[in-house]
Design a protein around this nucleic acid. Structure first.
Lengths: 205, 205
DNA sequence: TTTTGTTTCAACCAAATGGTTGAAATTTTT
DNA sequence: AAAAATTTCAACCATTTGGTTGAAACAAAA
């Protein structure tokens, strides 16, 4: 197997390692546990990844790519209105996080622990403020069609209302006594309400 | 010094330990580093706290108490309307988190890592759903004064819009190129917008 | 002054853990 | 079939780290 991408064992390791890192943290994760979780032994683990740090970095960068990559293109779509973008963004993010519910906490946590490592490797300064979405909002405000509000406030509102519930999911589920089915229904409601809340607010000039 | 509470050294340890635990995580934190940060030596640290675990638990429970304690009473105030409660809650939480900006991530992280330990020690099932605030919202909906919406959605919306920005602060600051002063202004705006957004939405029957 | 509690210091220990090694077996590629 | 890459196994090592110990200095309370 010379093909260096899409190796089965490597994939098993990455998936297992993500689970362990997410649950135990970068320092709390154990190489032995990752090996067990992947169904291999420690030698094999080191055969594929030099050490714990490089393994973690690979997984973290993959996570970041997923986290950001599924979002930014949507905000730069030139064929949709800002209303559609808001709607699409919220719905899409909810669907994505339903599949990867613990990604936000994992990412936020690592950025908190090693901000420099993160910001040095990823240039995120200009990816948001000059999106088509932000330009559309500014233009609409200029034309008096919507309230004058900094687009970043709109963006953070969208993000907050969808991402935070996933971060606080264990508490919300407990406090509201939700079953899994209740939770999904709750989040579907949330998607609808969040869209309405934001668009209502903006259009009420 | 027989007085067991409010000991100066103990307080220094608790504050230092919080900083280290918050930055490095429960597993990544080092007893030596906590001692250094507190300006004492390791022997002294163990003189005050049996071990790392008991130290962590004490700090975590204190954090939880702060996190919840400053909130619940406000939602059970019988002298304010639901509109005032929303307004008070949002403003108060923002002020609180401005002083303890990294508390939410610390708490959420630990709940993610040891949910059972948390839920066994703290009965949070009934503290929210039967608050005066929730009753007021239900009654207002029944009278047709506001939209029919589950109060938990209102609550999660309040929480999301204020708490999440603090969790994502490093990213937001970078992406929007905020100075500290910019950030404070941004959050003041957020408080106003969040109040308006929620109350507008509810009252538009 | 005596006793009790607090703090420092330096050395020490046992366990956990990341990582290595090297030989052998197995699989895949050529 | 030969060569190269993958996988297993078990033992091993160096370092880190949580925690201990005990003696001595210091401070506070009785």
């Amino acid at each position: 197997m010379l093909d260096n991408s899409s190796n089965k064992t490597e994939q098993q390791i990455l998936e297992a390692a993500y689970r362990v890192f997410q649950k135990k943290g970068r320092a709390g994760a154990r190489m032995q546990e990752i090996a067990d979780e992947a169904g291999i032994n420690k030698s094999m683990l080191h055969y594929y990844f030099r050490n714990k740090d490089s393994l973690f970095r690979k997984i973290f960068m993959q996570s970041i790519a997923e986290f950001l990559g599924s979002v930014i293109p949507m905000l730069n779509n030139v064929e949709t209105t800002w209303q559609e973008k808001i709607s699409d963004f919220i719905a899409h993010y909810n669907t994505f996080l339903t599949k990867r519910p613990d990604l936000p906490l994992f990412v936020m946590n690592e950025i908190n622990q090693h901000p420099d490592e993160f910001f040095n490797q990823l240039q995120i300064e200009n990816i948001l403020m000059h999106t088509v979405f932000f330009n559309q909002l500014s233009a609409a405000a200029e034309r008096g069609e919507i309230r004058t509000i900094h687009p970043i406030q709109v963006f953070v509102t969208m993000l907050s209302n969808i991402v935070f519930p996933f971060i606080a999911a264990p508490i919300i589920k407990k406090v509201a006594a939700f079953t899994d089915s209740n939770w999904e229904h709750f989040m579907e409601d949330r998607v609808r309400i969040t869209k309405e809340i934001i668009i209502n607010y903006l259009e009420k000039v």
